[in-house]
Amino acid sequence: MHAEPKQGGQFQRGISQHPTIEDKAHIVTEKDLRAIYGPSDPIDFVSIGHLASAESIPAYVDINKLVTRHSAIVGSTGCGKSTTVAGLLNSISDQSQFPSARILVLDIHGEYAKAVGDKANVFKIGADTVKGEKELQIPFWALNFEEMTKFSFGNIDNSKFATISDWVMKLKRESLT
């Protein structure tokens, strides 16, 4: 059950009730962890690894909630963010489980091509066709005016850019009449 936060409330971290002397303590077993972390409907869940406290228990993510809501994977350097993303991409791109999945990844550092292997088409700007890379071709209509001008005329100074901009606006107005 989700409780709405109270306005003006104070966030408190940690436990709110401490054990007292002679309270019973219970060791959390693997069975307990499975009950806590196990998915309610495994069809809608994908594995992204294993629990740190029990390697035999997979860590699952509800894929429907992940892709239909805002999501973020955050953490400090070296904590496994890229590995988590690679695992998610690998799971989501499994055609036997998600035959209609279509994923677009803008992988600026080239980290994820190996993670999805032969399940993906990888395109690169300035591809090396000798190595079997595929060239990414961007249609002109996907470029903004500044990008299109740079592509068409190369690096130009601001006065020439302004002149080109003025001419384009003039021609657009003329085409409307």
Rank of each mutant, 00 (worst) to 15 (best):
M1F: 06
M1T: 13
H2W: 07
P5L: 13
Q7V: 09
Q7K: 15
Q7M: 10
G9P: 01
Q10A: 12
I15Q: 12
S16K: 06
S16H: 11
P19D: 03
D23R: 05
A25Y: 12
T29K: 10
E30A: 13
K31L: 10
L33D: 04
Y37Q: 05
S40W: 04
D41I: 03
G49A: 07
A54H: 08
E55Q: 14
S56H: 07
S56Q: 12
P58G: 06
A59M: 14
D62C: 07
I63K: 05
V67N: 00
T68I: 04
A72R: 09
S76L: 11
S76N: 11
G80Y: 00
K81M: 03
A86P: 05
N90G: 02
D94A: 11
Q95S: 13
Q97D: 06
Q97N: 11
F98T: 03
P99M: 02
I103H: 02
E111N: 07
Y112A: 02
K114I: 07
K119S: 10
K119M: 08
F123K: 08
I125Y: 04
D128V: 07
D128Y: 00
V130G: 12
G132R: 04
G132M: 04
L136E: 07
I138K: 05
A142E: 10
F145E: 12
E146N: 14
E147A: 12
F151N: 09
S152F: 00
S152Y: 00
F153W: 03
F153N: 07
F153V: 02
G154Q: 06
I156R: 02
N158T: 10
A162Q: 12
M169V: 07
K170W: 06
K172G: 00
R173P: 01
E174C: 03
L176G: 10
